[in-house]
Design a protein around this nucleic acid. Structure first.
Lengths: 219, 219
DNA sequence: GGTTCACCCATCGGATCCAATTTGGGTTAG
DNA sequence: CTAACCCAAATTGGATCCGATGGGTGAACC
């Protein structure tokens, strides 16, 4: 799916990748206008590959296009965000169940390190990266490629709001999330698929319910 | 999201829509090459909107692009198809649960008519259309737009194989699927959300398991 | 006779140019 | 003073043209 050479060689893919990173790391915030010429200048290319890149990101849900008007970084309201969490509650346990039996010892070590790193650090941006790495790594050995891509897409579209949520919680978030991560980690180490499924479901569900009370994060 | 006017007015959208229909109705079969110039001539437009249309369909999973080489109608192997069914088993019950309480009497009538029409007809193409209409209609009143779009995408990517499967089964398929549809219909009418969820899960699951034994359908 | 290399053609990716549409401001009429 | 309309600038959508890449065919050499 992702061959290394052509993916960087082709401008539209390269621009789409860089744009995606810019949205995920917060350089571009939801609601922000995307000018084709601006990006074309930024990545020294013509507007054509930029247009294709924007269409790619639209299909991924990261950008919204209005015909003959323009493109904006996708903005979710609380309800849409909650919907995505509800979908995640259903499918991430599946990915976990498929992946857990196949995770190697090296990956278990990595997961433990990520859990510890999250507990140690207080920086929000760092936490966002580690949290994402941790969960996606727990799914990494599922052989269901399309499922894993779907999960990554759902994480991507909600990333700006996870950021806002984490910032709002401050360091208060630490202990509950950390406890859930440790419980999940234990279940994975014991290869207890059912327990792992229940734990990650609870993790997402609890976060979703907490989120439902924070409509302030959505302006 | 989907305004009626600009969607038809813009060539890339129009071409993407027509291409999608062509893939879904079997005019274009999995593995078939897609020539940009050919489509450009067919829809009298230039290659540019065709390129964008192909990218849109790639993002929907209906088309596979190889850089500097070309585009083909996506081809799934048995395993990938089974994966999609497993995802459907998790998320379609959710859509149903959200939708069932909100379905109006007019829609219940429509659903009943679809069930009867499927039982009456023997034509495969007709069955495919009705079956799709029926299930998507049961989800139609879920307020989870992104979920419903996702489900439609999963139906789309597996459509060629549902067609092959239906043809292979012939008229034999009738009674089991019909029985499941009637049971689902009853649960919906009674607004029995749990029973409806279980029934649709079983429906997809049984089909998936049957499919797992038919690797002959995949070349 | 088989294998390998080079060339050519088909097709895709990208740039520039032009047309169409929207949006905002300014003016005019009520 | 307000509202509606019209015009202009900005921005997107589309077409044509050119360069690049990759595969296939044919010839030459081993």
């Amino acid at each position: 799916m992702t061959t290394t050479r052509p993916r960087n060689a082709i401008a539209s893919q390269r621009i789409a990748d860089e744009l995606r990173v810019a949205i995920l790391d917060g350089s571009l915030v939801p609601g922000e206008r995307i000018l084709q010429e601006e990006l074309a200048a930024q990545y020294n290319a013509s507007r054509l590959p930029v247009r294709e890149a924007i269409r790619i990101l639209e299909a991924e849900g990261l950008v919204s296009i209005v015909a003959n008007s323009g493109a904006w970084v996708s903005k979710l309201d609380l309800d849409e965000c909650v919907q995505i969490y509800k979908i995640r509650e259903r499918i991430e346990p599946l990915a976990l169940a498929e992946s857990v039996p196949r995770l190697g010892t090296r990956q278990l070590e990595e997961l433990s390190e990520l859990v510890d790193a999250m507990a140690a650090g207080t920086d929000v941006e760092n936490f966002l990266v580690l949290d994402r790495q941790f969960h996606l790594l727990t799914y990494s050995e599922s052989r269901m490629v399309s499922l894993n891509q779907l999960i990554e897409r759902l994480w991507n579209t909600t990333q700006p709001y996870r950021r806002a949520f984490s910032i709002a919680l401050g360091s208060e978030r630490n202990w509950m999330i950390h406890a859930e991560h440790k419980l999940l980690m234990e279940a994975i180490k014991r290869r207890d698929v059912d327990e792992a499924e229940r734990t990650v479901l609870g993790h997402i569900r609890r976060t979703r319910i907490e989120l439902e009370g924070r409509s302030d994060l959505f302006r």
